[in-house]
Amino acid sequence: MKIDNALLQKLENLSSLKISNEKREDVIKQLSEIVEFVENLGEMDLDNEETTFTTIAGGTPLREDIPNVNPNIIQTILANAPLSENSFFVVPKIIE
């Protein structure tokens, strides 16, 4: 599977990244190489295998519905936030 510039653009949009123009060719080449490598999985006979998403058995633990807040956490975060005002995080608007 070859990665091309159009696919790279799509991936950039989905992941909010931008590869600079000088690096694009290299990145496309590297990604293509890696994708081609991982395609070796096609050589394995996996039709009858289960999928293993985790090695932990059982169901997800269920937490009791009891409130608990540590105000120190938000104080530290707001104090060091890139931009905050009156306890809000501030971000620029979307411009179409």
Binding site: D65, V69, I74, I77, S87, F88, F89
Partner: peptide, 27 residues
């Protein structure tokens, strides 16, 4: 009484960013 994935109280109309923790702040 609490959020789905953390123990912060569910709330309405409180001061901004008071019912938050490491989980719902995405730390």
């Amino acid at each position: 009484k609490t959020k789905i994935f953390c123990s912060c109280p569910t709330s309405f109309g409180h001061e901004p960013n008071t019912n938050v923790c490491s989980v719902c702040l995405g730390l």
